[in-house]
Design a protein around this nucleic acid. Sequence first.
DNA 1: GGCATAACTTACCGACGTTAACTTATCGGC
DNA 2: GCCGATAAGTTAACGTCGGTAAGTTATGCC
Lengths: 229, 229
Amino acid sequence: MTEASARRRSPRGGGEQLRADIIAAVKDLLIETDGVEAVSIRAVAQRVGVTAPSIYLHFADKDALIDAVVSDVFAELDAAIASAAAGVSTPLARLLAEGVAYVRWAVEHPEHYRVAVMQTDHTPPDVDDVIREGAFARLMETVQECIAAGIFPPGDPLPLALELWTSAHGVAALVIAKPYIPWGDVETLARRALTAAGLGHAVEGLFGGDEDFEAIASWVRKRRASRQN
Amino acid sequence: MTEASARRRSPRGGGEQLRADIIAAVKDLLIETDGVEAVSIRAVAQRVGVTAPSIYLHFADKDALIDAVVSDVFAELDAAIASAAAGVSTPLARLLAEGVAYVRWAVEHPEHYRVAVMQTDHTPPDVDDVIREGAFARLMETVQECIAAGIFPPGDPLPLALELWTSAHGVAALVIAKPYIPWGDVETLARRALTAAGLGHAVEGLFGGDEDFEAIASWVRKRRASRQN
DNA sequence: GGCATAACTTACCGACGTTAACTTATCGGC
DNA sequence: GCCGATAAGTTAACGTCGGTAAGTTATGCC
């Protein structure tokens, strides 16, 4: 068991340092153990070199502590996506790059992704905050650019962005929750799934009526046959 | 607190009845409380009218008990999908019906879906069992029929089925985990997301090279413009 | 009616989240 | 330099949790 040496008492007004150390310790312990429930307040306290009740000087309860960790995790996820999107100039390609980066980060940090996105929140955050800042805001901006470029049908980007989020999350969450399934290379899987989702939304309504499956099927059959020559 | 009256001792060889009652009690408690961790062995025991250690006569530990519940939940999910798919004759429409039924069942039974699909399993089941029977086998069969009908490109239906599973799971899991997001009507959302995924896979490779985004974008722009007249 | 044993219960363990009450190190003011 | 206010901790304890060991009791075959 890793344990920190006894901690020197923080100077006056310096209690915030402990707060940051606690969050970092939780993130470490999430990686070492599995699941939030396996990360105990006592273990976190020991890791930062303090007794358990000291945690409650900075967080109301365990839920509040986890919420703080989740915020931290979302910031990291957003940074990873931003870094992957930088330098990709065309909107459709950037949309794919962002989605793939999302899945990649999730799969590389499964314990953190799980606690942040795969569980119902204890305290729901402000909806506007979620939509207007962070990773989702970035996604919506890219979707808006795709609309402007004529790739997606004109209209509100919000529903489209939400649906693309579900596509990326579906891959990430299932790969994390069911790792024994033969997913193959996850990056390839993500690329295929996200391309299909984007493509699907792009061509929606371009064949027959939206729900006329026979029209779609016959168009596809014809096109596929003609390309085989 | 609901509590069962004291239970009569089961007759010889009738211990299996208690086992079934325990599973049913867990499923009830999952709905009433939130999350597996909030369902305690003691509460389950009280619910079935027995003391806590009696649970261990039928399940090695809590994980084993939850695994049994998960099996039960998967069977229910499969039955719901089967019922929705019955009577839908064309393969593409049936694929959509199955996917929508999957999401609907998940959202109507969030506590059960969460414990079955949204968490990493304690004991991974046999892969072949997952793929060859139950809901996933049904999905793969429908995908195979779509391939036979010329809607999806010929080849192994497994990757395609896996990707479509991620699409449905993405919607279900995010709606459950983040209910405060303005998803709108979930059935509509599911229908749109799944249609896009199916459509995307159907038309993949029908434009230019698979990764030639500009070819795709320009085809879409042209087609969209011509349909506007 | 006796007896083997399946089907339970009682009593207890260490670990958990959390609270109340107590202690101690820091640091501005004299 | 030391003094007192108080921020930054600690110690001790409560009830609940998952789990185990050992004891008890009802059942059903002979």
